[in-house]
Design a protein around this nucleic acid. Structure first.
Lengths: 135, 135, 135, 135
DNA sequence: GTGGTCTAGACCACG
DNA sequence: GTGGTCTAGACCACC
């Protein structure tokens, strides 16, 4: 599990952990039943307070993305295929909606905005393909 | 000047003011030289403390979107056309980039993502046209 | 009398007027007995509130740089040669002291600081000579 | 960290804090990574409101001299050596320039001005050496 | 414990 | 009238 924490971004650390773990589950980088890194280990790795990691895992548990099994560890929860797909779409729609609203407010045409989006999509798409081969 | 403040959104009030005034300047609803609503008046209207409004205006001044003149008022600053356009594009690209990254991570195709974007763009576009007529 | 007011410098307008008039008197650009521009005229020229100019002149009167003669106007006051010289030295020493303190705090040697000072002195000196000829 | 606040100087308290902390960072009395006195502690020590200290630290953060980490504290930011040196020179040049302009306006020769500067530099220099031994 | 936000109200500075 | 500063004290978010 790769997490990239930015102490200076203003976004609370526990939120960064939640967002990134959630994304990795939705992106199938983590599968149902997989065990997550323990609270202590992750805290040590990220150089943050264990309470911060624990809080993040608790929130993920409330969102039913993970299950805590006392004395054993934290595991990726089973999710219905439909549920996963719905959540993905929702997160994506939120991001696209913010972009659409900005484009309209700034008087940028549909065509221009779409062109920019496609450029960015392809750039990140090729990067992803590249990083796959590297690892 | 229309501001829509949500006291319970978690986003600090002064940040909401900053974001909305900045957007209105970039969207040309406020033009260079225009006087903003005075600190006290806006505070009364939004039912918040004057210091909260003042803090928001201070931040906008630091970003060089407005100028404060003691004993006179707060005014929209002159901005080079180029600067305005660059800022708009930057803000829009950030939003589109977040969306593109999400789409890729969730294995949603370029075509599907673009289709969703266009749907949302048109929905908000027609809303905007509607709201114009209402006022 | 040439005054250069900067509305956006943060320094109060009345203070800018006081400082610049005082300097011009000390620099002998204005001589004892000379009549200053009237409050109204100066206010119109600088596009500021007449009360602002009046306040500046009042402060100059308290410092005994000018005399107000009711119904006549404001005039540069007589000052003893010694007084003028002392005031000049005081103002200069204040400026030099601030620079010396900064240099020491920033670990910049006496030699380096003096070299910078001489460079700046000569640059402004030649500018002044140039502007004399132009007028 | 030694701060010398004058409540009656007319200069806002938060500005005095900003100026003095900035200087101490530039003068290397505070080094990158050092933790600053906490908002509450400094407020208690200076007998001012915590918000006043917080405002000062906020401004220093905007100038990128410090970093605030919620729940942890305020720390001196990393700055490139070049950036520090450039900032120092800029502040010093500003002070020297004001002095040079005053000297020229008051018809004080380069030699005389330099002589005064050297006298003041040495006086403050020896004071600094003295105060080092005292602590 | 840390810093962040907000309030209500006072007083000052500027024009 | 305008904005600027500061206080005392509350409550929140984060670690």
């Amino acid at each position: 599990m790769i997490l990239d924490i930015d102490n200076h971004s203003g976004v609370p650390i526990y939120r960064q952990i939640v967002d990134q773990v959630r994304r990795q589950i939705l992106a199938d980088h983590l599968s149902a039943g997989d065990q997550l890194v323990s609270v202590r280990d992750l805290a040590r790795r990220l150089k943050v307070n264990p309470m911060t990691v624990s809080k993040a895992y608790s929130l993920l548990e409330m969102e039913e993305f993970v299950e805590r099994r006392r004395g054993v560890g934290v595991f990726v929860a089973e999710m219905s295929r439909g549920g996963v797909k719905q959540t993905k779409k929702m997160l994506l729609e939120e991001a696209l909606e913010r972009a659409a609203v900005a484009a309209i407010q700034f008087d940028i045409s549909e065509e221009e905005a779409v062109a920019i989006f496609i450029r960015l999509y392809r750039r990140h798409s090729s990067r992803k393909a590249g990083s796959r081969n590297e690892q």
